[in-house]
């Protein structure tokens, strides 16, 4: 257990604000940063799909996506000394690297890009903003899917069924305060994840 894995952001920060740093993610991140090669496998098993999906939906070509995924994990491993658990949760750091690599791939001169990639973006010129939007959606969707119950159900009702706090409380037969606190935590968690994955 590294000393940084359990660090709280500030004395008065609610514990849940620091959750990404103290759970499984913090453990793997700390082991990764400490140069433990087992952590690469752990990280890949958990977030290989996230990294690959970011790459695949950004560049379109499965072979390029495979290359970007490998480069993401290997460059994270070689650059592990630059990972600071106090600055970003590990998954966000990994996501940032994947996002940067995928967008860099799109920015390559057209002549260098492979035919399949160019064809995938029918306009010929890839849209970086569109790619950034896609990555945001993947990141948020993945975080939504990692919410436990009843948070996920509450978020679904608030976001997609567009029910009010009190309508959700009634529907789930749950105290209003519980609904409010789950929504608050989930929204903050999604925001933290989204912002963390955008940092460069």
């Amino acid at each position: 257990m590294s000393a940084t894995a359990l660090r709280l952001a500030s004395p008065s920060t609610p514990l849940w604000d620091t959750l990404p740093m103290v759970g499984v993610e913090g453990e793997i991140g700390a082991a990764f940063a400490a140069g433990d090669p087992v952590a690469v496998e752990q990280a890949y098993q958990r977030w290989g799909g996230l990294v690959y999906t970011i790459a695949l939906r950004t560049v379109g070509d499965p072979d390029d996506a495979a290359d970007i995924t490998q480069a993401t994990f290997l460059s994270a491993w070689h650059g592990r000394a630059s990972y600071d658990p106090a600055r970003a949760p590990f998954k966000s750091w990994l996501t940032t690297i994947a996002r940067r690599r995928a967008v860099d791939h799109l920015r390559r001169p057209v002549g260098v890009r492979e035919f399949a990639t160019a064809e995938h973006h029918e306009g010929g010129q890839p849209d970086i903003d569109h790619a950034e939007g896609l990555v945001d959606r993947i990141v948020v969707r993945e975080e939504l899917d990692s919410l436990g119950e009843p948070a996920r159900t509450i978020v679904d009702l608030a976001f997609y069924s567009q029910l009010s706090h009190s309508e959700i409380a009634t529907k789930l037969d749950m105290p209003l305060g519980t609904v409010k606190s789950h929504l608050r935590r989930s929204l903050n968690r999604l925001r933290t994840r989204l912002e963390g994955s955008r940092d460069v």
Partner: peptide, 8 residues
């Protein structure tokens, strides 16, 4: 954040 989640 809500808008990204709704889009997704």
């Amino acid at each position: 954040v809500v808008s990204v989640a709704r889009a997704a």
